[in-house]
């Protein structure tokens, strides 16, 4: 129950930060900082895949409704949620994941987080800009936007985890 409330709170928080703050940040050349995939990433490992896809869709379409992008965020969010179990399987530790541990920067180590979340964010951003531009002669522009936006989104996602998640005590 507590974790349920926690995720509801996070859903609202990511929505508000993305729509009211980050969508207004202009860094030039059409780049965009996107942090809401972190919400899907921080959900429990053993969550039902249908629920995962539905939550991703719900968050995406809510952001779309507030920023006039008509399903663009929902589409790229679904891609992120669909690839999450696949990427988690690829980068799984030798003994598998512990069922009640949240997958974050602290619990899994920076190297693991860098690999999994980095790859997923790259897929997400690439799809987002591909659909947004949707022209073959702007293919180079898609790569440029992806490469420029991913590091900034990634850095902010790490920063956000310092604020959101209490560091586990060393005695455990």
């Amino acid at each position: 129950m507590r974790s349920f409330l926690k995720h509801i709170f996070r859903f609202a928080m990511f929505l508000v930060i993305q729509v009211l703050v980050l969508n207004q940040v202009e860094l030039g050349a059409g780049t965009l900082i996107i942090i809401y995939p972190l919400f899907i990433f921080l959900l429990p490992v053993e969550i039902n895949i249908f629920l995962l896809l539905f939550l991703a869709f719900a968050l995406g379409i809510s952001i779309d409704a507030l920023s006039n992008t008509y399903g663009l965020h929902a589409s790229s969010m679904l891609i992120f949620a669909y690839f999450r179990p696949i990427i988690l399987k690829v980068f799984a530790p030798r003994d598998g994941y512990e069922p009640d541990v949240e997958l974050n920067f602290y619990s899994m180590g920076y190297r693991w987080f860098f690999q999994t979340f980095g790859v997923l964010l790259l897929i997400h951003h690439f799809w987002f800009f591909l659909i947004e531009l949707f022209r073959f002669d702007e293919a180079f522009y898609v790569f440029k936007l992806t490469v420029l936006s991913v590091p900034m989104s990634f850095a902010l996602c790490i920063l956000l985890q310092f604020l959101l998640i209490r560091k586990p005590s060393k005695g455990l």
Partner: peptide, 17 residues
């Protein structure tokens, strides 16, 4: 079923877009 559910939602999102 997972892929179909994904394709359904994705189809909706892209159609809307």
């Amino acid at each position: 079923r997972v892929l179909l559910f994904f394709a359904l939602l994705q189809g909706f999102a892209l159609t809307v877009y």
